[in-house]
Structure formats: C-alpha cells, structure tokens
Amino acid sequence: MSVHASPDLSHIEAWIFDLDNTLYPASCDLFALIDERMTAYVGRLVGCDPVQARAIQKRYFRDHGTTLSGLMALHGTDPRHFLGDVHDIALDRVEHDARLVEAIARLPGRKLVFTNGDVDYAQRVLDRIGLGTSFEAIHDIHAMDYVPKPAPASYAAMCARWDIDPAAALFAEDMARNLKPAKALGMTTLWINNGSEQASDEEFAPYIDYRAAHLTDWLHELTGEMA
C-alpha cells in the first residue's frame, strides 16, 4: 500500500521504529556478525566445536524464542554479559544516512526505537547512521525483562512505560510477524519489505497497513505530503 492510498496520518503522535534492518539497509547484514559471535559464545559455554555450538544455538532459538532466552533458562546466563559479547562487532558496514536523518527530523511528534537488542548496541548503530540524538528513548531487551518481540506483553509494557496511546502511534518493522501485536493494540503498522523477512508475509497481511522497500523513501514521500 502506498502513502497515497493510505488514510491521513495527521493523528500519529508517536513514531516507533525497530532498529536492525529497519533504520539501516538489510544488505548491511549485521546479524551475520552477531550470529557468529552467538555461536562462539555457546561453544565456549557448553564446551563444544562450532558445528555443535551452532546446532545448540539454533535449537535454543527455536525452543525458547531467542538464543538468550534458552541460555538464561538452561544455563543461568547473565544477559548483560551475553549481549555485551555478541554485540561487540564492527559497524563499518553501516553508513551515515543524511536523507533518513532529515526525514525523521521532519516527522511531527515523538520518536522512539523499540528493539530486541540492547541500548548500548542500539546507540552505537544510531550514531553511525547519524540518528544518535534523534529519538526520545530506546526501549530495549532489558526494558522488556528479556521477553522479546513479538510477545504481546512487551508491546503493551512499552506503551505503558512511555505513555503512548497505541491508536496514535505508528510502528515500523522489517519482520512482518512483529507487526501483529502492534496492530492488535491499535497501532498503525509499516512493514519494511527489504528482504530480511525469511517467512512469507501472507499470514500477517491483515496486520500490515503500509509496505515499503525503503524506509527513507517512504518517509520522504510521507513528510512531503504533510508539509
């Protein structure tokens, strides 16, 4: 659905953005670097070779929702130690995006980041993009009590923490399945269809209000109409 086919968005008071593969291109593939470090972390913890470690990591992800959740449940892993380790990656793949900085600055109302990562990592990424001071808050995995998106309770808690009216909020996210709880709360939803979503979006189509291949272009079109 294009901006021109959408209803008036003048009612939006809070603009909420996922971080990874939403505020920067999926082609950066930072998760590949994080994934390597997660496998290495599991290998050191369990004491096994990389092939076994990767199988364990993926099993934890499948059975517990995230690798971290599995590590916490089965090994009592300190989440801050884990997140600090796996997010210790080079960010040279992420480039300054002046057009995105400008577009977000032109949005009326509040702006927040809602991420399954942690604040330290998110801030580093935002600084690289040029968005280091563009957001009121970063609601991260620690604030979610380690219950990540798409758990519905995490969305409700985020809205309560920052006094957000879901009916006056828009949530932009590259994973279509993560839009369902937002839509259930009454948010307007934007799916960044940039190839990062591995599953089909058909199941989640009813929860998608807008689709865009590039967030920057979509926002420039939108803010141009708002002007």
Rank of each mutant, 00 (worst) to 15 (best):
M1H: 13
S2F: 08
A5K: 15
L9W: 14
S10R: 15
L19P: 05
A26C: 11
A26N: 14
S27N: 05
D29L: 08
D35Y: 10
G47K: 04
A53P: 01
A53E: 01
A53S: 08
A53Q: 00
Q57A: 03
T66E: 11
T67V: 13
G70V: 01
M72Y: 01
H75C: 07
G76A: 09
L83G: 03
D85S: 14
H87V: 02
I89P: 04
R93I: 06
R93H: 14
E95F: 10
D97S: 13
A98N: 05
L100H: 04
V101F: 02
A105I: 05
R106E: 08
P108F: 03
P108A: 12
Y121M: 07
R124Q: 04
I129Q: 02
S134V: 07
A137C: 11
D140N: 05
D145I: 07
A156H: 11
A156Y: 04
A157G: 12
A157C: 10
A160V: 08
R161T: 15
R161F: 04
P166C: 06
L170A: 11
F171Y: 15
D174N: 14
L179C: 08
L179F: 00
P181Y: 09
A184G: 02
M187Y: 08
M187T: 05
A199Y: 03
Y210W: 12
T216M: 07
L222C: 06
A227D: 13
